[in-house]
Amino acid sequence: GRPPQPKSVEDLLDRINLKEHMPTFLFNGYEDLDTFKLLEEEDLDELNIRDPEHRAVLLTAVELLQEYDSN
């Protein structure tokens, strides 16, 4: 089946190999997954995450988090 739900933002970023963005998220108040899963493209602009590939991966991760919630 699906991988288990990540336990933290750090756990999530670790899985998608984008842990380099951890300080950015923490500094901007994305300390838990409840906050993280509200992330949208405009937020990525504000966080200055410009890499299109990173953005795509992050937004996909957000969608997956929302799916875990609805099940």
Rank of each mutant, 00 (worst) to 15 (best):
G1R: 10
G1I: 13
G1K: 14
R2E: 05
R2H: 09
R2K: 10
R2S: 08
R2P: 05
R2L: 10
R2V: 07
R2I: 13
R2G: 07
R2Y: 09
P3T: 12
P3S: 12
P3N: 12
P3I: 13
P3E: 13
P4K: 11
P4M: 14
Q5R: 10
Q5I: 12
Q5L: 09
P6I: 11
P6W: 12
P6H: 05
P6Y: 14
P6G: 05
P6F: 14
K7C: 06
S8H: 01
S8L: 02
S8R: 02
S8T: 10
S8F: 00
V9C: 01
V9K: 04
V9Q: 03
E10G: 08
E10A: 11
E10P: 09
E10N: 06
E10M: 08
E10C: 07
E10I: 08
E10R: 04
D11R: 00
D11Q: 09
D11I: 00
L12M: 07
L12Y: 05
L13F: 06
L13I: 00
L13G: 03
L13E: 06
D14V: 10
D14C: 10
D14T: 12
D14F: 04
R15C: 09
R15N: 12
R15H: 09
R15I: 10
R15P: 02
I16Q: 05
I16H: 10
I16G: 05
I16A: 08
N17P: 00
N17G: 14
N17V: 02
N17L: 01
N17E: 09
N17Q: 09
N17A: 09
L18C: 06
L18E: 03
K19G: 10
K19S: 14
K19F: 05
K19T: 13
K19M: 12
K19H: 10
K19I: 12
E20C: 11
E20L: 06
E20T: 07
E20V: 10
E20P: 06
E20S: 09
E20M: 10
E20H: 07
H21E: 04
H21I: 07
H21W: 10
H21P: 03
H21R: 01
H21Y: 15
M22R: 05
M22T: 13
M22F: 14
P23M: 10
P23G: 13
P23D: 15
P23F: 08
T24Q: 06
T24M: 08
T24P: 01
T24S: 07
T24V: 11
F25K: 03
F25I: 04
F25Q: 03
F25P: 01
F25R: 01
F25E: 05
F25D: 05
F25S: 04
F25H: 01
L26P: 02
L26C: 07
L26V: 13
L26T: 10
F27H: 15
F27Q: 15
F27S: 15
N28K: 08
N28V: 00
N28Y: 10
N28C: 06
N28E: 05
G29V: 00
G29Y: 01
G29N: 03
G29P: 00
G29A: 02
G29F: 00
Y30S: 04
Y30I: 13
Y30A: 01
Y30W: 12
E31T: 15
E31L: 09
E31S: 15
E31G: 15
E31W: 10
E31R: 14
E31P: 11
E31V: 13
E31A: 15
D32N: 12
D32Q: 08
D32W: 04
D32M: 05
D32T: 14
D32G: 06
D32P: 00
L33R: 00
L33N: 03
L33K: 00
L33C: 01
D34A: 11
D34W: 04
D34G: 08
D34Q: 11
D34Y: 05
D34T: 08
D34R: 07
D34S: 11
T35N: 11
T35V: 07
T35G: 08
F36I: 06
F36Y: 01
F36S: 04
F36D: 04
F36E: 05
F36W: 04
K37H: 03
K37D: 03
K37Q: 07
K37L: 06
K37N: 03
K37M: 11
K37S: 09
K37A: 10
L38N: 13
L38Y: 11
L38V: 07
L38Q: 14
L38D: 11
L39P: 02
L39W: 00
L39S: 02
E40I: 08
E40R: 15
E40L: 08
E40F: 00
E41S: 09
E41I: 06
E41K: 09
E41Q: 07
E42K: 15
E42Q: 12
E42Y: 06
E42F: 04
E42S: 14
E42V: 09
D43H: 10
D43F: 00
D43V: 08
L44R: 01
L44K: 04
L44H: 00
L44T: 01
L44M: 04
L44G: 02
L44V: 03
D45A: 05
D45K: 11
D45V: 11
D45S: 06
D45I: 13
L47G: 04
L47Q: 03
L47D: 02
L47I: 05
L47P: 03
N48I: 00
N48G: 15
N48M: 07
N48R: 09
N48L: 04
I49D: 04
I49R: 02
I49K: 02
I49H: 03
I49V: 08
R50V: 14
R50A: 09
R50P: 06
R50S: 12
R50E: 11
D51A: 05
D51F: 00
D51E: 09
D51T: 07
D51R: 05
P52S: 09
P52Y: 00
E53K: 11
E53R: 10
E53I: 06
E53L: 07
E53V: 10
H54G: 02
H54N: 05
H54F: 00
H54C: 05
R55I: 04
R55C: 01
R55A: 01
R55H: 05
R55P: 01
A56H: 12
A56K: 15
V57S: 15
V57L: 15
V57H: 11
L58F: 06
L58V: 06
L58D: 09
L58P: 07
L58E: 07
L59Q: 07
L59M: 13
L59G: 07
L59P: 08
L59F: 03
T60N: 15
T60W: 08
A61S: 10
A61L: 00
A61G: 06
A61I: 00
A61V: 05
A61P: 04
V62T: 07
V62R: 09
V62W: 03
V62F: 01
E63I: 01
E63M: 07
E63F: 01
E63A: 13
L64E: 15
L64I: 08
L64F: 11
L64V: 10
L64C: 13
L64M: 15
L65Q: 04
L65V: 08
L65P: 01
Q66W: 10
Q66A: 09
Q66M: 08
Q66L: 09
E67H: 11
E67A: 12
E67N: 11
E67M: 09
Y68A: 15
Y68C: 14
Y68N: 14
Y68E: 15
Y68L: 12
Y68V: 12
Y68R: 14
Y68S: 14
Y68W: 12
Y68Q: 15
Y68I: 11
D69A: 08
D69W: 03
D69K: 09
S70P: 12
N71V: 13
N71L: 13
N71T: 13
